[in-house]
Amino acid sequence: METIEPISGHKEKGGDEDRRDYTGIRDGAAVIKTVALRAWFGSLMALKGVDILIAAGAVTAIIGPSGCGKSTFIRTLNRMHEGVPGARVSGSVYFAGQDIYDPKVNPVMLRRRIGMVFQKPNPFPMMSVKDNVLAGIPLQGTRGSAGDDVLERSLRQAALWDEVKDVLDKPGTSLSGGQQQRLCIARALAIEPEILLMDEPCSALDPIATAKIEDLIHSLRGGITIIIVTHNMQQAARVSDYTAFFYMGELVEYCDTDTLFKSPHKTRTEDYITGRFG
């Protein structure tokens, strides 16, 4: 990096040290609110108390060095974290007027409203392209009329329709990596989630496929809330409205994306985005 500024001590002014959220998002505008959210793998605490408000309809990027808890964080939001043996969560995540960790909440139903796309494309190998997109129907056990409508709409939203409309009956795994990832996005969109969690969706893809997915994130903005984990800071800057910087299981700084990359409030953030560590 050419333009490293010297670390300037004045960034963290006195009473400011405990402040992490510089977004100005208020409770009323948030779809998700976490309070003192902690997560463990066995005895390892991977999230050490995260308080964050996620703005409805916005794209929020999660950045931070490897192992800082980004994946763990988004996996606590749809209760995928607890599927790992020995994993545990404490604190609260509010969504749709409920603490999703309330024992009354059914995580299966929660995941029908909060979709997820994984780092590695994971189309179901024994299913065709079409069946992959519509996999939510048998998997949720919802019978009904949904079908070709949902199929085309989801594939168009995922910017994949034109490429696969003639091979809908081929196995989902016969597509290229980038197409497979968009197939997985289409599959997640087909269940019409209110929130889409994306864990480094482009890390296995080339720049062209990456650009396509970024375009599709742009086109989804507003209709659906997106939380995207990324290692790629340019990508975070391009696609997101807000960016949260995590470090060692803590939320260090949460800010609108422009400010976070142009003039971060915290020294750690600045060190990270200028490539001094991580």
């Binding site: 749809n78 299966v108 029908r112 979709g115 994984f118 179901f124 190998p125 996999a135």
Partner: peptide, 25 residues
């Protein structure tokens, strides 16, 4: 595990994930 998680993340319960994804695979 990624296929299992893929099914669960789509709002499937364990049994449907087994029936529609794991056993066919």
């Amino acid at each position: 595990a990624s296929l299992r998680e893929g099914a669960i993340a789509l709002g499937s319960n364990r049994l449907r994930a087994i029936r529609h994804v794991i056993l066919p695979t």
